[in-house]
């Protein structure tokens, strides 16, 4: 096939925004990052499961333990508290999608007869703040849980359960912390200069990260807390 293979392509200044797929670079990068994070948490979760039931001394997650001196350590996991914190994190994901929707809806006119719910859906600051607050609440639950465990005799050094549990949930908590700081930065930008529809992508990327941190917790909650 005869062909001139290279043709001048006059793209002027538009090249900085033109991409092959029409998608934004940052969104591709965040999805690749999330893919990589799957492998990170897979390694952490695998290790937890591999060491499950291998601790030589207690406290244990789901069963009672009596040490050589006759001291009794009850099963350490606090399911009611963690169920509550799980619920809080799930609701933060709801707040997050509503924050994204609020940013997307900016610029479209509000119907005259809009009720409170329709109006509330337009407030990106409300939902960003709500997400960050729920995330911080989750971290508060985690801080309570960790200190309670230490008080009851489980530290990161105590046994394999302590090492794997604190590392896995600590890694997740660190991700939540980064997410809360990220959301607070967005909230700050929203309060100072306002986020508009053109900032949709910036919020979307933060949202993707936030939801991913949430789905990791969905897995952790089942595998670590509920399955015995």
């Amino acid at each position: 096939m005869a062909s001139h293979a290279i043709a001048g392509h006059d793209d002027g200044h538009a090249h900085t925004h033109h991409t092959t797929t029409g998608l934004d670079n940052r969104k591709i990068a965040i999805w690749a990052f999330i893919g990589s994070e799957c492998m990170l948490f897979a390694s952490l979760i695998s290790t937890y499961l591999i060491y499950k039931g291998k601790s030589l001394v207690g406290p244990y997650p789901h069963t009672e333990y009596t040490d050589a001196a006759g001291k009794v350590f009850p099963a350490i996991l606090d399911i009611p508290v963690t169920s509550a914190s799980t619920f809080v994190l799930l609701m933060s994901s709801l707040a997050m999608v509503l924050a994204l929707q609020a940013v997307q809806l900016k610029g479209t006119p509000l119907p005259a007869n809009a009720g409170w719910w329709t109006r509330a859906q337009r407030s990106s600051q409300l939902w960003l703040g709500m997400t960050a607050l729920l995330g911080a609440t989750f971290l508060g639950f985690q801080a309570y849980e960790f200190t309670a465990f230490v008080r009851e005799g489980l530290t990161i050094k105590t046994n394999l359960f302590g090492s794997t549990f604190f590392t896995l949930t600590g890694f997740h908590g660190a991700h939540v912390t980064v997410g809360v700081l990220w959301l607070m930065s967005l909230l700050w930008i929203d309060r100072t200069r306002g986020l508009g529809p053109k900032d949709e992508l910036v919020v979307d990327i933060a949202a993707l990260y936030w939801h991913f941190v949430d789905v990791v917790w969905i897995v952790i909650f089942t595998l670590i807390y509920l399955i015995q």
Binding site: A2, S3, H4, A5, I6, A7, G8, H9, D11
Partner: peptide, 19 residues
């Protein structure tokens, strides 16, 4: 200087000798 448009795997060979 200008982003090229590509129509094959071996654009420069096509350019030098289209056949």
């Amino acid at each position: 200087a200008q982003i090229p448009t590509v129509t094959s795997r071996y654009p420069l060979w096509d350019l030098k000798d289209p056949s």
